[in-house]
Write a protein that binds this DNA or RNA. Sequence first.
DNA 1: ACATTCAGTAAACAACCGTTCTCTGATTGC
DNA 2: GCAATCAGAGAACGGTTGTTTACTGAATGT
Lengths: 208, 208
Amino acid sequence: MSHIVGARQAQKQRTRQALMEAALVLLENQSLSSLGLREVTRAAGVAPTAFYRHFRDTADLGVALVEEALGGLHAVIRATLAATGDSAVRIDAAVGLIARHVHAYPAHVRFVTRERHGGVRRVRDAIGGQLGLFADEVAAWLATQPDCAAWSEDDRRMLAHVYVDHMVMTASAFLEAGPYGEERVEAAASLARRQLRLIGLGRRHWLD
Amino acid sequence: MSHIVGARQAQKQRTRQALMEAALVLLENQSLSSLGLREVTRAAGVAPTAFYRHFRDTADLGVALVEEALGGLHAVIRATLAATGDSAVRIDAAVGLIARHVHAYPAHVRFVTRERHGGVRRVRDAIGGQLGLFADEVAAWLATQPDCAAWSEDDRRMLAHVYVDHMVMTASAFLEAGPYGEERVEAAASLARRQLRLIGLGRRHWLD
DNA sequence: ACATTCAGTAAACAACCGTTCTCTGATTGC
DNA sequence: GCAATCAGAGAACGGTTGTTTACTGAATGT
């Protein structure tokens, strides 16, 4: 493996990824504030000192995990919002999207829901920042919708906040339901859909 | 201090309380899964081995904290639900109650919101169990309300779930707003009230 | 009064932690 | 080709961790 351009950077990114994946596995049974540096390097198969080539400390690793878990979702959310459709099929699509995402990246979802109110301030803030951006995008989309055009900006942000919070809670519910069978997952989906329907009804009559 | 009946048990409960309070203080800047036994006893001013006279491990301490934080709230919730009033004053009363409770017991609230999805399964389950009981009580109350009497049992549980989740999120929002001044707290209260109004509107038109 | 109970103490244990310093050897730019 | 760079390894450090064992002495029941 020589004379390949960027072979060094490629290998570095590889171990960096190995560290992040090892951390993600370990974080399924504990929280970030108890995650040890040595523990991570051991699981990743590198020397403890190699950790410092990539992260200052485990909190730094956590911030990188937030970026990995949520950074790529903005495009997905924007695309989902742009899709048109009846409100009922909208709800089905949104809940189905969440269900599939949780099924595909359970460890990332668990990490975000666990550390959103977790013991490490920098990670908490990073998650809060990303969710705030999600709310911004939803609020901007709401401004383009006929039924919310006449709302105040504050009220649109309030509703966007509700949608984002509901998305996170639904993801968490799918995560808890997952190991207990498919009917539990379907119950969580049904719950989420009805809650969205309730919110949609409130939205429709907000200006009464 | 001799020849007092129960002097021994009283002193034991005292150190037990000292351990729990010390833990609660330490848990403001970390999460339970990183809380050390020695750390707690040091902060409580007792020998490390004294810990075992009260708790098997720190997870056990966490379960006791859940009981302390949420066990006494059932009566408060039931009393609040029993109070009659217009829906607008109901909302004001509920949000005000949450605000006052967060102000009075910030560490307990922080602990619950942090460990609800935290890294210690037994504590997670204990919190989930208590919140489930809250939802039961709210659902039972909804069954007595004229506008929900015709709802299905499942739908009432869905709405109760929404109310309980909203209560927890509002408490967390108050907690985050607290250190940044009174206007931030008022903004959180306004947000919570409008969200409750939205839910109320959805509830009113559920059977349309 | 006296024997029992038991909350809390004290010392020791092996294991683990984060961090520093030094070194190696393959990739890199020239 | 050759010198410079730098990701990773290795060893050692002082400190902390959970747990065990043996012990103390005041509150207890009779």
